[in-house]
Design a protein around this nucleic acid. Structure first.
Lengths: 217, 217
DNA sequence: GGATGTGAATGCATTCACAGCA
DNA sequence: TGCTGTGAATGCATTCACATCC
């Protein structure tokens, strides 16, 4: 396997790599030096074989008889995910959710920096949102180019989301994290990842309903 | 296939059912009466066979030569997901994200009602958060029983999340939607669904990095 | 004709199991 | 001995393709 040309890596494996990284960072904070695939797997309820197979997609990072060096693996996985360099990110939508995302301190340490905020609502333009001035969507292209932004977060109402997505694509954005409860239509060259809170809740209610058959509430 | 005894339905299928439901509700708002598996699939970039197979896990809802009746299918899928009745939900964590979730209007129409708010931070206890009084975690058991709450949303810092999860389990909660960036350890009888915003961003940066090999930024 | 529901075939991801190295 | 990396085997999900019904 040639790590510089990842050919095609299964989507589920890429998701787990993020989880390994999160876990490794926790281990590192506790000054742990090495970890085996078995230990890393147990901390996430996965098998050791799964862990080794996933890591092997990206290269040979382990040391037989020893395990993986925690800090070394962190470095390699960040490189693999592309988060060894900082990404400038823009946000569209300065409503409740958008402002909560702006205040969320979990992005910076992971290599993402929010550098611009936009909103389609004219009454919000020019207002301050945390450290950022809220810009109109007409500025998308200019700001995207000026700050080399490739990734956007969409936190607008469902009705506005597709229109916003179209404008983001037009402005040259390559990846979108979408919180609006709609399926966005974009060219294949643009990556969309959607988080629909209602969908998440429905998964839970389904599972809970199933496991409660015959049980009292 | 016996819809009253779903045996075992693939997880990916359950996730898609939520998406079908979301799409069908949009169709219904536009007064659309029927829809074929092909049309429903196209609106979500899925094949018609995939749609039919998924729906068939839950029963025979279609009409050969016609398609599916939109409103009828909505009813059936809500029953399948358990959202034909309203679920009382509690929230732990009245920080930025927690308050944004409280303000989010997308839950009620989907059958979820936020009825109680908790926080581990003593200085917040007794304060008002929207329509709710913030309660201490010691009240979890009492409130859960009093209001028949089975599902909880966790929006606390990573360090506090496992402890909160333990107390939720102790209080009888059966499903948890977790926004803290940690892997929660709970008994098999409890369902956990985690949304880690940093993980979502990393998926995107990976995909964008891949597609940009050799390209200028 | 038009569309569903479903066994059979395919394709992917996970798990097994073991050679090989420290 | 302990643990990795990886072909081979297994198990699941998706897709195909067609009998069936309006």
């Amino acid at each position: 396997m040639d790590p510089s040309r990842p050919e095609s890596i299964p989507d589920p494996a890429v998701r787990r790599i993020s989880l390994y990284l999160r876990q490794l960072e926790a281990f590192s904070r506790k000054d742990r030096r090495t970890v085996s695939s078995k230990q890393l797997g147990e901390s996430l309820s996965l098998t050791d074989a799964q862990v080794r197979k996933d890591l092997a997609y990206f290269g040979q990072f382990g040391h037989p008889g020893i395990g993986y060096n925690v800090d070394e693996l962190i470095t390699k996985l960040r490189q693999a995910l592309g988060t060894d360099k900082t990404w400038n990110v823009l946000l569209v939508g300065a409503g409740n959710l958008g402002r909560a995302l702006m205040a969320y301190r979990g992005f910076e340490s992971k290599g993402f920096k929010l550098v611009a905020v936009f909103d389609g609502d004219a009454s919000k333009i020019g207002k301050q949102a945390g450290p950022h001035l809220i810009q109109p969507l007409t500025e998308l292209g200019r700001t995207t180019r000026a700050q080399s932004i490739r990734v956007a977060i969409v936190a607008v109402p469902a009705e506005a989301a597709q229109d916003v997505a179209d404008q983001l694509v037009e402005a040259g954005i390559r990846g979108i994290l979408n919180f609006a409860p709609v399926s966005l239509n974009v060219p294949a060259s643009v990556t969309v990842n959607s988080v629909d809170l209602a969908v998440q809740m429905e998964q839970i209610s389904f599972a809970v309903s199933l496991s409660s058959i015959g049980q009292p509430p």
